[in-house]
Each structure stands twice: as structure tokens, then as C-alpha cells.
Design a protein around this nucleic acid. Structure first.
Lengths: 218, 218
DNA sequence: TGTACATCAGTGAACGCGCGTTCACTGATGTAC
DNA sequence: TGTACATCAGTGAACGCGCGTTCACTGATGTAC
């Protein structure tokens, strides 16, 4: 799972320590949460002396932030690709984004935790805020293409829609996923189904027909 | 904010140490997150020797769990009261529950974190799972009274509705709230409005008219 | 109402441990000539 | 192509610190008689 090519023989220079530490951090985050490890421990697991990490990270939070930042970049890329300019139609592209969101939360669990549940202050760590905003911007773009009408007949503001959808996705991902723990409620079934059904209902509430009835307009 | 009546003079017996430690924990959780303090520190802040907490809690996690447990009890009580048997009508009672949810997440922030974001395993700590389930059951009860129709015409399963709503609430509360940190996206406005608009759209998607048009039936 | 005693909830000293961090150092790598 | 040297990315020993936990203890409280 962690790339350790050519690590068979101990060498003075690790060669890839920065990435190795991030890998170790990801493993430890999954096992013990974002606060559940130390730089010393990460160093040991990476097979390196306790002082070595300081060549790459000022402290543990910096390591965590690096994981989060890399996560955002991957996340934004995945979302962008899922959206694919709203092809073949806005609704199905949108649902695809939701699926990617959940997949990311599951497969890149450690990154997800670092990004959204580690308590990192976006305004204190360079680039973190922007990286998050960039991902959010993709959602807004998709919401804009999708359109929608509020119950009172006004057109739905895309940023509002985006916020709703992000909240629902995040709620599903974090509340009903085993590791962050609680697993409250009896819903242990398919997360994807849970999310998609919620999404369908929400879109219908905005007057957006789902299924094959809707062709892309852009 | 923390009740410290009669604490002016040091006495050998604290008299209320268990609750005092929980209060301290709540303060520290808000400032530093669920992992951001030690039993020793809590003891010191409660004005007591480092060994004293062991009379009440086996370790830090036990203290955290006690905070979570008390939180669930208060939470369930608040929700139950907000629902108030669906009076005067199911929809407005339902919206009231949502409001209570957000209010709780804001005003009982520390409890909320301990309950949903601390990574406590419900199945490892006595009573935690049940306490969570009990709160969820209230939501299911409300969803049952509310009814609703899926986009495909089938009646909406109440536990599905409850899960959707819990996810949306949790997502709004945790994603757009300042302290757990990230504050992703531009939505810093009124959380209540964000939640209620999402909720209205969702209910409309289930064919449930909001406003005064709907009377309670139970 | 007073006394003896059990129990409870604290004290404070002590311990070993792992962490964060620093320091002078050194082995490996890349590059100028 | 070979050599000298600067730079980089590691080492490993050391330090002070706070934490978790234990221990024998002690002051306060409640209760039986």
C-alpha cells in the first residue's frame, strides 16, 4: 500500500522521506485519528532517526497539513474529472460527482480526515483555504449548470445548492462511516444508496427531473 | 460559564469533582479538540492533585465518554421536547427539531464534538451506542409522522428520511462551523437559514408541503 | 446527643516513558572546472 | 574523465518536560450504637 521500492537496503539518504512520512501519517491517521501519532513515531516507522523529519516538516501539524493539502489537490482533480463539463447530461454528471465524493471519503479516508476533521485552521496554513475553495468552486460550477427552483419560485442560488449538497455528502460520509467511530443509527447499509436517494429527493425538490429525462444544455 | 460555587476556599474534599472535571474537559475540547488535553491537566485546572481524577475516571477516554454520554442525554431530551408529539403540526415540529439540532451543536459544542467527532467507539463504551440510538429513534418517530413519497412513487421509509436529515444536519453543523476548523467554502452566513432552506427543498422533494398547509395527524 | 469507626475522596511524592527539539556531526550527491 | 568542494539530507546523543499511573497516606463524612 505504501510505495517502498528499493528500500530493502538501508541507505544514508532515504531519498523519498517527505512522501514516506506522509504515507506513514496516513496510516496512523486511519488507525488512531489525526492527533494519534507523533513526529518521532512517524520517523521511526519510516525507518529514520527522530531528527530527520525536521528537514521536511516544522512539526506534526505541518505534516498533517501537507497530507490535507495533497488531499485537496487530488480531491479537486477527481471532482473536476467526474463533472466532465456536465457530460453527457448535468444530472448524471452531478450524481457522478457525489459518487466520487463518497469514494474519496472511503478510499482516501486519511486525507479526508486531515482535510475536514483534523481541526486544521485554513487561515493559518498556507494554501489550505484556497485548496478547499477550489474544490468547492467545482461544486458551484456544477450547481450553476444544473439550475433549480426554490419552493418559493425563485431560482436557486448555486452557492446555496452547493452548500446543501456538500453538507449532505459530508454528513453521509462522516456520520455513517465506521472509523470516525460512532456509526450512530441503524443505517449501516450502502452509503452510496443513502446519498443518492437523498440527492434525488433534494433535486426533485428543486424541480430537477432525474433519470434519463434530462439532457445537458451547455 | 462553569459552575464554581463555593470553590473559594480550598477544601480537602472537592465535593463535585466528577462534574468539575467534565466542565474542564468541555472547555478544553472547545479550545483544543477532543484529544487536546490530559487527565493531569484537567486535574490541575480543577484545582486538584493529578491522582484525584482516578477516583472518577479510568483514563482520559472515560472522561470524554462521560461528556459524550451526558451530551446524548441532553440531546435526546431537547429533541423530544422540540418534537413535542408533532404539535401543532408535523412540519413545523420537524423544523423545530432541526433548529434544536443546530442550536445544540453550537451551544453544546464540546458535547457535540465528544459525541460525533471524538472517534469514540460506541460499541466499546457502555451505554454510548444506546444513547445515540435513542436520539436517532426520535428522528425516526418524527419522520414516520411526517410521511413522504419517494420520486418513484413509493412511500418513503422513515429510517431513510431520518438518515438523510441527520446527515444534512450534521453536515451543516460540522462543515460550516468555525471551530472544528476548516470553514470550507464561502458559506459563513446563517447556518439556520442554510439548514432550513435545504430542509424545505428536501421535504418538497418528498411531496410534503411546508408552511401552514399541513396539520398533524397523530 | 456523643463517640468510635468504616468508608470515601482527596494528597503528594515518585517512577518510567515517550515526545519535541537541538546540536555537532557525517555520508551521499551533484556540479564546476 | 577526474577531482575538489558545496550542499543536502541524514545520524545519534542529549536535554528538559509533561504525562500516566502507583502508592502509602490522610482528612472529612456519615452512621451504628
Amino acid at each position: 500500500m505504501t510505495g517502498k521500492k528499493k528500500q530493502a537496503r538501508r541507505r544514508y539518504h532515504h531519498g523519498n522521506l517527505r512522501e514516506a512520512l506522509m504515507d506513514v501519517a496516513r496510516r496512523l491517521i486511519i488507525d488512531r485519528g489525526p492527533q494519534g501519532f507523533s513526529l518521532v513515531e512517524a520517523a521511526t516507522l519510516a525507518g529514520v532517526s527522530p531528527a530527520a523529519p525536521y528537514r521536511h516538516f516544522a512539526n506534526r501539524e505541518a505534516l498533517l497539513a501537507a497530507v490535507a493539502l495533497a488531499g485537496y489537490q487530488r480531491f479537486a482533480k477527481d471532482l473536476e474529472q467526474a463533472w466532465n463539463d456536465g457530460q453527457p447530461d448535468a444530472v448524471s454528471a452531478f450524481m457522478r460527482m457525489g459518487e466520487v465524493y463518497l469514494t474519496f471519503a472511503r478510499d482516501e479516508r486519511a486525507s479526508y480526515i486531515a482535510m475536514f476533521e483534523a481541526g486544521l485552521k485554513g487561515d493559518e496554513i498556507g494554501g489550505l483555504q484556497q485548496a478547499g475553495d477550489r474544490a468547492f468552486a467545482i461544486l458551484i460550477k456544477a450547481a450553476t449548470a444544473l439550475g433549480g427552483t426554490l419552493p418559493d419560485g425563485q431560482p436557486a442560488p448555486p452557492d446555496l445548492m452547493a452548500a446543501h449538497i456538500w453538507a449532505l455528502s459530508h454528513g453521509v460520509a462522516s456520520l455513517f462511516t465506521s472509523s470516525p467511530s460512532d456509526c450512530q443509527g441503524p443505517v449501516t447499509g450502502d452509503l452510496k444508496e443513502l446519498f443518492e436517494s437523498g440527492m434525488m429527493i433534494y433535486l426533485k425538490g428543486l424541480g430537477i427531473r432525474s433519470g434519463s429525462a434530462h439532457r445537458a444544455e451547455n
